[in-house]
């Protein structure tokens, strides 16, 4: 289990912000869907996949030791996802709804924490 940066732990004091463990194989985001919120991964890893009949794995994103990964970028909330994001190894994550990010400055600030590594839908970007 990964560590939880304090800004992320604080997020759990907002309605609709939920922390949970997701098992391997569960789809976090389907291709073509809008994310509607961001995931902060605290441990485990996810696969970015794309394809027609059979999915092709594009890349695997894991949580570095002592870190946390935010995906997708808050600017991509209304974008139709070009990829499917599937849990590769059990993840501990916090889901933050997009409506909350837009309406609450404290949430936006917490997600801006430099302790979070960012992963965009089209590729990794530095936080």
């Amino acid at each position: 289990m990964g560590s939880v940066p304090d800004p992320v732990r604080r997020l759990l004091g907002w309605r609709d912000v939920i922390r949970g463990i997701r098992p391997a194989g569960q789809v976090l985001l389907y291709r073509g869907h809008r994310p509607g919120g961001v995931f902060v991964l605290l441990s485990g890893s996810v696969l970015f996949e794309r394809g027609g009949g059979g999915l092709k794995s594009l890349r695997e994103v894991g949580v570095p030791e002592g870190g946390a990964v935010l995906l997708p970028l808050p600017t991509e909330l209304d974008v139709e996802s070009p990829v499917q994001i599937t849990v590769a190894t059990e993840v501990d994550l916090v889901f933050v709804p997009g409506t909350l990010i837009e309406s609450d400055e404290q949430i936006a600030r917490a997600l801006d924490s430099r302790e979070l590594r960012r992963e965009g839908l089209r590729g990794p970007r530095a936080g």
């Binding site: 304090d6 732990r9 604080r10 759990l12």
Partner: peptide, 11 residues
């Protein structure tokens, strides 16, 4: 002041 009130309630 470190966490919101709802955080404490949930916790």
């Amino acid at each position: 002041g470190k966490y919101p009130d709802l955080w404490h309630l949930r916790h």
